[in-house]
Design a protein around this nucleic acid. Structure first.
Lengths: 156, 156
DNA sequence: CCAACTCGGATAAGTTTTGTCCGAGAACGA
DNA sequence: TCGTTCTCGGACAAAACTTATCCGAGTTGG
């Protein structure tokens, strides 16, 4: 039960892109966060494939958000980087063994599966309630209104 | 973001132990669910280490629940088998890089971390709301009142 | 037209999870 | 009381996934 470490990087990158004026290269984002540029590229590609950011190639290229930060939820980023599949996978062991339940009685998920589905949905709902814009607002609230100005200046 | 497959086995075993009169050997539980006995033993050991079940050695030994099923939550089982650590681990990348936040300003978790903590807590709360007794009641409701009688009979 | 810079996917190393085995210990029957 | 049989418990490999890296294709700007 461990989430990909790339999720943290991706979320921080999305928050930074909120402040950026134009496209930002992956290498610049990696330097800003002091992480492996080669690996961060992988996470950004996942975000691009999910349609959360779009890439601009060429001399002054880089990555930029595709839509308003208020319309990108944390769940979107987590699903893009870590995968959209639920953490729990039911293998239907109730249909196996000497006392196997017949398949026609298995129209609805078993009680164990139901509990896991409910927990997963609660988790998703919590992540869906927070947007990238909310995170950016939290950064401003925590570290002062000039924080993003400094980032914008450093990005060039 | 994948939960250990052993969690499913462990939960089903706990439900079965609800119906058992005496201790049940790991091999018997494995045969009932048609899974690897060697590997199921590992999960049961985790449950025993967590104090959810206790082992009885010797000729007529096996595993039995230590307390009332209504006092064992699904979260207890998940934490025992899959680990109690939260899925998301914050690496404090805000304290790294050229624009690093000074350590004295990092008394509280960053916004990203806060969102993850909230989601994790929602997930835990959902799992804490369901007990092994609830799962057993769900089985009875789904497959009929005689289900556990059949299991008890098969266990011998 | 050239050159430099960007992303994109294909390619290895490390780590965790999964799966298996045999030895130590305890209870029952003789 | 002793031996046998059954049980758990921890130590030992195999496999899958995550992590990390590289170089080529494509595009922009001068």
């Amino acid at each position: 039960m461990k989430m990909s470490g790339g999720v943290e990087w991706a979320l921080h990158c999305c928050v930074v892109l909120t402040a950026a004026a134009g496209p930002v290269p992956a290498a610049r984002l990696a330097e800003l966060h002091d992480v492996s540029g080669s690996y961060l590229a992988k996470q950004l590609q996942s975000l691009a494939r999910a349609g959360l950011i779009h890439s601009v190639q060429g001399h002054a290229g880089g990555y930029a958000l595709t839509r308003d930060p208020a319309n990108i939820t944390v769940l979107d980023v987590v699903a893009a980087v870590d995968g959209a599949a639920p953490a729990f996978t039911c293998t239907e062991i109730r249909q196996r063994g000497p006392l196997a339940t017949p398949a026609e009685a298995c129209a609805i998920p078993c009680p164990v599966h139901r509990a896991m589905i409910a927990a997963d949905e609660a988790w998703r709902a919590a992540l869906r309630d927070v947007t990238i814009a909310d995170l950016a607002a939290g950064v401003t609230s925590d570290y002062g209104p000039g924080t993003f100005d400094g980032i914008r200046r450093w990005l060039g």
